[in-house]
Amino acid sequence: MSTLIDLAGVTKVFGSGAGAVHAFGPVDMTIEDGEFISLLGPSGCGKSTLMLMIAGLLGITKGEITLAGRNVTGPQTDIGIMFQDNTLVPWRTVRGNIDLQLEMRGIDPASREDDVEELLRSVHLEDFQERFPHELSGGMQQRAAFCQAMVHKPKTMLLDEPLGKLDAMTRENIRKDLQSLWMQKRPTVVFVTHSIEEAIQLSTRVAVITPRPGRIERIIDIDLPFPRDFDVKSSPEFTAYVRETQEIFRNYGVI
C-alpha cells in the first residue's frame, strides 16, 4: 500500500484576534491507499472540519494536506463526498439525483446507464429510482445519497456521519452493504462517526479524536477479519477494541 492522503501539522482556527477559536490540530497522519479509516469522536471535536479540509472545501489555517501527491489548495473533484445532511435535491428523482453528479461533471448520464443500474442494485434501490427523495425513508435517502456520491467512481470517499440520523436497525443494515461494497471495490474511505462500535466494525484503522481543540489521541489498528458480521462483533477481540476506545474517551472526560 502507498500513502494516499498525508496530513502534516494540519491546524484550523476559526476567526482571528481575540475571538479566534482554535478548532483543530495540529495533526499529523497518513492514510494509505485502499484503507477504511474512521475519524471517531464526540460532536464538536472537529472531525467534520478535518474531512472538509481534506476535500479542499475548507481552508487550512496552518500545515499541509497532500492528496495523491498533490497539495490540496482548493476543492478536490476526484473524490466522492457524503455530507452530514444529504445533498439529494427535492426536484429530482433518485435516478435524477444520481445523474446530477454526472451532469455537473459534464458526463452524459446515458453513457453511464449500466453503472448507475448496478450501483442502484448494490444498495437495493433499483425499484425506487423513479421516486422523489420525500417519498423515501431516511435509510433509503442515505442509500440514494451514497449512490450520488460514488457514481463518478472516485478512488477516495469521504463520508461524514452518513448513518448519523438513522435508527439502529437501519444503520446495521446499511453498514453491512457499505462493508461489502468496500470489500468489492476497495476505495479509500475516510469515515466520520461518533459511534465507537460502528467505527470498529467498519474500519481497518480508527483515529480517536478528542475535542477542544480536536486532536488525534490515538490511531488504533483493527485487526479483525472481514466481513465483520454478528459473530465478529460478539467476539472478545471486538469487545476489547470497544473497551480500549471507551477508555480513551473516559480518561478524557468525554464519557
Binding site: 472538509l52 472545501l57 445533498t87
Partner: peptide
C-alpha cells in the same frame, strides 16, 4: 444550503452549470 454549495464545488462544475 451550505451542503449543496459544497456539493456543487466538489464536482468542479462551472458557475453557469
Amino acid at each position: 444550503s451550505e451542503e449543496l454549495t459544497r456539493f456543487a464545488r466538489s464536482t468542479g462544475a462551472s458557475a453557469w452549470t
